[in-house]
Amino acid sequence: MQPSLAELQRALAARILAEEGSDLDDWICVPSEADSAARVAVYVQGYPARIREALRETFPAVAQILGDGSFAAFADRYAKDVPADLQNLNLVGAALPAYLESDRVSGDLPFLPALAELEWAVDRCFHAELLPPFAASACSGWSLDEWARARVGFQPGLALVCAPWPLRELRETYRCERSEIDVDLVDRHDQVLVYRRGFDVVVESIEAAEAEAVASLQCGDALGEVAAKLAGSGAEPAAVAGYFGRWASLGLVVSCEACPLP
């Protein structure tokens, strides 16, 4: 009895994914003078090669810091352990930052998960929609109370990545030779804001208080609550007004609405 379409496809998939128990060899054919192993290898080797290439493109600094051999081995482990369920190679790295948290390469290089998170944020920002910026005139007559109740929406591609490592400097390592990488990691806490200016992605280190304000607003807090949090952490609460003005001038704010009184 002939195998079904699904059985044949599962057999080739199992061989490509290096799983056990494939009946593939009984079901394929090549010309008599051809080497069937070489032909199967086209598909078996193509799968990890494409994933490696896609990941290298999305995570250039992680790849540069690990080096070709280590990155390829890491990418192969990732491809094996994290099944790709979306038919788009451009999205295959979505789970890589989280995967790095428990992978052995992060043992000696504990900043890698945060660096990967930053590189993924840059990639997503590049592809994000750029919405019309918020028009400041819409709230020109607001009272202080209305400002305190205002919730802010940012551009879809805006991201904040914070870590106890010099993330922005680490990301720049993809531009240099691996042998020239020399980044001081001690006491280099960094808060990085990722956003779009036109089609360019901006990666900017910001101060801790501004990062706290962004994070708080992304959680849905109102500006008054953000100011209270800043005060609680020893920062100047009025600074939030300056931050808002800066974000608005950069086109990062797309909505600002005063919530109804409870």
């Binding site: 379409l5 496809q9 490509i16 369920d85």
Partner: peptide, 25 residues
Amino acid sequence: CWSSVDGRALFDLLPLPLTEECLTH
């Protein structure tokens, strides 16, 4: 071609068995 099975993407243009079953499918 086919490029996925059991929900798993294989990112390749994989060969089909050229059968009546497959043609109908």
